[in-house]
Amino acid sequence: MAEPKYVEILSQLRTRCADLAVGSKLSSERALAAEFGVSAMTIRQSLSKLGEEGWIRRTRGSGTYVSRPVVAMGPSLTSLTEDLRRLGLTPGAKVLRFEPVIPDLETTTILALRPNEQAVVLERLRTADGEPLCHEISVYPARLKQILSAADLTRSVHETLAAEGVVPYSTFRRVRAVVASPNESALLELPAGAPALEIVDTFSDALGEVVQHVRSRYRFDRYEVVSNIVRLPHPLND
């Protein structure tokens, strides 16, 4: 069964938006209808879905402009790679540093290491469809060095660890807003002094052993944290 026309057009417009710079103006509904040989209603359906996905923003009286989907971190434990794939975005990473280190006292304590015991640091620039999204610095126990050294570190580290039986099962997470450093602003293509969303995770396996301590700083305009929060019932007063 053939897919609806608006879905076919949606796919083409999605690709077009991905190839255009953020802020680029799209053709009018009338021009797009003429280009694709369909009614304005069909184009309106495609644009509406495109807006829901975050690929465009529409300004009354001005026009339709290219945007980018906002990646949402939900209440369940998923990797950035999974979140990007779910949005139809291609995850990627550039390795900036991978080397053994003697971590500071706080990280040594978090990883449950002995004093002066080595760990492994991995610094990466994470991307979505080739565009910078996150600057990430991870520290791993030295016992995982062999697995990491043999891995393609431009891909999902969590998937690599899971394939070797080291599954990130839970995390302790802290989220806050920070000012991106000059280096991070350059990496993330942000204006100087721009904010970033910092998320610090300490991932543990099913036995409670820490497998990764990571500080990630995301573009403020491309990432958000979503939670479903309910009020606990109050105890009855005597």
Results as ranks from 00 to 15, higher is better:
residue 33 A to S: 07
residue 107 T to H: 05
residue 115 P to H: 10
residue 94 K to W: 08
residue 148 L to Y: 11
residue 189 E to G: 09
residue 197 L to E: 02
residue 112 A to G: 06
residue 154 T to A: 06
residue 118 Q to V: 01
residue 48 S to L: 11
residue 187 L to F: 07
residue 133 L to D: 00
residue 102 I to Y: 14
residue 216 S to R: 11
residue 38 V to W: 00
residue 31 A to T: 14
residue 201 D to H: 05
residue 43 I to M: 02
residue 9 I to A: 02
residue 10 L to E: 00
residue 175 V to Y: 03
residue 166 V to G: 10
residue 143 R to T: 14
residue 12 Q to T: 09
residue 112 A to T: 11
residue 132 P to D: 09
residue 126 R to L: 14
residue 162 A to Q: 05
residue 108 T to S: 15
residue 174 R to Y: 13
residue 25 K to M: 11
residue 123 E to G: 06
residue 172 F to V: 12
residue 84 L to H: 05
residue 93 A to I: 04
residue 53 E to A: 13
residue 54 G to W: 12
residue 149 S to L: 12
residue 174 R to S: 10
residue 178 V to M: 04
residue 79 S to G: 03
residue 129 D to P: 05
residue 125 L to I: 07
residue 81 T to P: 11
residue 6 Y to P: 00
residue 93 A to S: 14
residue 172 F to C: 10
residue 87 L to C: 09
residue 92 G to A: 01
residue 222 R to L: 15
residue 86 R to P: 09
residue 171 T to F: 12
residue 74 G to Y: 12
residue 138 S to F: 04
residue 166 V to N: 07
residue 192 A to Q: 11
residue 193 G to N: 00
residue 126 R to P: 06
residue 50 L to D: 01
residue 178 V to K: 02
residue 175 V to K: 03
residue 3 E to F: 02
residue 236 L to W: 06
residue 34 A to S: 12
